[in-house]
Design a protein around this nucleic acid. Structure first.
Lengths: 198, 198, 198, 198
DNA sequence: GATGAATGAGCTTTCATTCAT
DNA sequence: GATGAATGAAAGCTCATTCAT
């Protein structure tokens, strides 16, 4: 009984989260109404408030669902690649692949994330791309220690890499057809590796 | 008379635009009301609608004012630097300087710009950073032709450079104190120049 | 079995009533939600509706519980005081004592009771202070018949006495600290007894 | 121009206040919706918010309108009666007359006033009947100094008088037909003057 | 009987937009 | 052109009540 009830509860909450992510991503959080989400989930508006305190709380949980499993999943899935730079490259590619499969993630990362300044100020660690930055810095530090790359400023390197990822995503969202994002990834790798100098 | 009237008209329209940019940048366009702007410009709310069809039209004109003079100004002011790569680096630095002086520009470029998907879809060329991308691609192509740099994919290079600029700006907006954006610029230059390989 | 069941039923209903009185008195009936009461009674919201038809019905039963045992108790406990006026004074004092011990009673008498105009119109006899008025009139009539007091308008006298009690309670609810309600009672007695004339 | 506009503004605000008092008095503030008031004033709901910050602010202004001019008017209009006790009696009678003419005042004084505990805590001086209490205390003190009445506790006396007024109003609101409130006033005067003792 | 998730009508409040002056 | 009072649609949110379990 309890387990079934509890399962229903979790399912309903997850259903709302899932639909909310969809709608938020499609319309933007400001343009999305609770009525939109309730309609998408085929529930009454009031039901949303059974599971979430407010629209803002719902949005925050959506972001954490994305930031948590999805982004961490990418970091984790590349963990075992031995070559450090290969690992970062794979990380880059997997991120792009994820975004191509679930464009709403890009939507959250590049758009919603930037609007919630208050959210950031309160929980700076939830900044989704901050996690990426940390990951890149960590790996680049290792690569330097292992003498696989020269001694560079790893924070600047992380901004280059993550900034390029983020920007490529943004552009891809707008002009999907004209952007071969996978080819771009390979070329970015080449530039970062050898530089632009002769 | 006519010219004077016309001048008044232009002045009042420019006054509204100027104040709107200020308020939009400070509060975000969604949080900004027409009343806020009218108050900032010390005019009546109805007057805004004498010069602009709607709030959205006003926002769009604000973006064009920024994208136009301000960003083009940076491109133009670095036009005469002879060395191509030096020119791009100066462009990068001037952009950062501009943003540090007028943070509302960053606000528009990194936040507002991404919210107006409709705007983009309708007018893809108004994408502010698109102009930067074009500028970087153009210059990198020249640099290759002049054999100042090796033959790279200039589009990927542009994404790296502009993406890093944009991302650094975003981070700087959130955590101004902990980000020495000028030092980062220098380190990014170094990485792009020589690559990370030994 | 049946008796036990019935006892359980009565117990649960009394539990709800008891907790409802507490919560209604603390927050006011309008600010109180069924969820508040269910929470206070540690039962499910739906259970409230097993015993009461509606929130309003619950409130009405609460009022009757208070008007019944509590107020009647005061009347009864002073029944045996032989001197009529002494009896009324004691009645006054006991009422004050009761209210000081159970302030939620004052809350109901002075606040909730006045809001339910519909309730009154339907059941005028449930007006809690009406019972007091009747009691005072009855006793004053007796006192006159016994020639303990002069022939006054006993209804006016009852309004004076009960009105003063009610008003003193109201003020005491608002500014508990600054009102020595017992001293006031003694002084009111003196005025009523001898009048204000020299 | 300005004066006409300004006059319109004041008129509209007064119109809203007037209608709000009517509706609040008829339905109670909690049961009254902004839509009710807007409908009564034949304006749009939003217009209410042009003149008042919130429903609560509107209610507060309603109370002040009543507490201010109306109650003070009674106090003022009896100022010139030379005999102190006669003055207080006239004050009592005028209050009753006012309430009979504008029953909504009674509604506010006896009902709304008691519900807004928060309001009281914040602005204890706005307590409408507090003003009456002060007035009675002041006059009774004078009467004692003038040796027109004996030395009584004037605060207790004020509670008797104002409490009786308030209670009589409450009862009259509920059972208008069966209460000759003017006769009661005369009898209350008699009791207070000579006491109940032989 | 007991539960509590689900409901949806109804509330207050906001604000882009209009229009008589 | 300029005004700002007026509008009313639409939003987020609450909560008494219901009903399948």
């Amino acid at each position: 009984m309890n387990t079934k009830r509890s399962a229903n509860r979790r399912n309903k909450k997850e259903l709302i989260l899932e639909k909310a992510i969809e709608v938020f991503a499609r319309k933007g959080s400001q343009q999305t109404t609770i009525a939109d989400i309730a309609h998408a989930a085929k529930i009454a508006q009031g039901t949303v408030y059974v599971y979430f305190d407010s629209k803002e709380a719902l949005l925050n949980e959506c972001m954490q669902v994305i930031i948590g499993p999805e982004l961490q999943g990418i970091i984790d899935s590349t963990k075992d690649i031995p070559d450090t730079m290969e690992r970062l490259y794979e990380f880059f590619v997997k991120h792009i692949t994820l975004v191509k499969e679930k464009p709403y993630i890009a939507r959250f990362l590049t758009m919603e994330a930037r609007q919630n300044e208050d959210f950031y100020s309160q929980y700076p660690d939830y900044n989704p791309l901050k996690r990426y930055i940390d990951h890149v810095v960590l790996n680049a530090d290792i690569a330097i220690a292992e003498k696989r790359i020269r001694s560079i400023d790893t924070h600047a390197f992380a901004i280059l890499l993550v900034g390029a990822m983020d920007f490529a995503m943004s552009m891809w969202l707008i002009q999907k057809d004209n952007l071969d994002i996978v080819a771009i990834a390979a070329n970015i790798r080449d530039i970062l590796k050898y530089g632009i100098n002769d």
